[in-house]
């Protein structure tokens, strides 16, 4: 029996398979729930699912690799674009700022009762509290020693200093911070005046001397140029009060000003060309 089976196993199995196939075909048309198709499907489903999982993931893996490469290229391109845009934005901001400053300068130049020459600051030394700055105008542009220089900051005229050295193409400006600098100043709403002296490099403050004791000065009061001396025109902002010391047995009080000029913010200044200079400018008059 066993030998017969082994000898004819091909035929036996062939018949079995044919019968199963035909039965399965008949079951397809019947209303039976448990057909060979269903049974075989249920048996083979885990394999098919695993197979689908592997195939899908393999395909996803390869498509991901392709996408990754594309993303890498896209990333490089976008980074390059971002870099260019950042550069463009930076340039635009610079131009915008410059444009704004120049517009302000132009407006105020037109309003000024004296001729002014715009100049660009080409050198400034922050280590010495900006006591001397260099501008790009020289004797070639009719710049002379002793001319007053102011700047536009936040839409206001603020005193910078005066020209102390003139070369052909550039000039040096001694700022209000410099210890040699002295400017006649007055309080914005009163007629009391005094002389503001610089204190660099010790401090970046101005000391107001010869200011009458009877004047009531308070913290944050604004001081402007008084216009005495013929160098600085009146009405240009100088600084605000940070300290007041009344002297009991003196005619004058000591006032400390913080200059309003901020050299880290400005790039351009104006040189006042034709304001009447009533005194001869000498090195000694600078230090007074």
């Amino acid at each position: 029996m066993n030998q017969y089976f082994l000898k004819n196993k091909f035929t036996i199995f062939f018949i079995i398979f044919i019968v199963i196939s035909i039965i399965s075909m008949f079951f397809t048309t019947s209303s039976f729930i448990l057909t060979p198709k269903v049974i075989f499907g249920a048996i083979s489903y885990p394999f098919v699912k695993a197979y689908t999982f592997v195939v899908q993931n393999t395909l996803t893996f390869f498509s991901s690799l392709k996408e990754l490469n594309l993303l890498k290229q896209e990333n490089v391109r976008l980074n390059e674009e971002l870099k260019q845009l950042k550069e463009a934005k930076f340039k635009l901001e610079l131009l915008e700022r410059e444009n704004k400053e120049l517009k302000q300068m132009l407006n105020l130049k037109e309003e000024a009762p004296y001729d002014v020459l715009p100049a660009q600051i080409i050198l400034k030394d922050p280590t010495n509290l900006y006591s001397v700055i260099t501008i790009n105008r020289g004797s070639n542009d009719n710049i002379k020693k002793g001319l007053a220089v102011y700047a536009i900051q936040d839409g206001e005229k603020i005193i910078v200093g005066k020209v102390i050295e003139v070369n052909f193409f550039y000039s040096k400006v001694m700022t209000v911070f410099d210890a040699r600098s002295s400017i006649s100043v007055k309080e914005l709403y009163s007629n009391y005046s005094g002389i503001a002296r610089g204190d660099a490099p010790t401090s970046n403050l101005l000391q107001v001397e010869y200011f009458p004791n009877e004047a009531d000065i308070f913290f944050n009061d604004i001081f402007i140029t008084a216009g005495f001396g013929g160098i600085f025109p009146p009405g240009i902002l100088v600084g605000k009060v940070v300290d007041v010391q009344k002297q009991n047995f003196s005619l004058y009080q000591k006032i400390t000003l913080k200059p309003l000029i901020d050299f880290s913010k400005i790039q351009y200044v104006f040189v006042i060309l034709n304001y009447e200079i009533t005194e001869d400018y000498t090195e000694s008059s600078i230090s007074q």
Partner: peptide, 9 residues
Amino acid sequence: AGLNAFFYC
């Protein structure tokens, strides 16, 4: 169901 199995056999 079974047609291809039948045919291949």
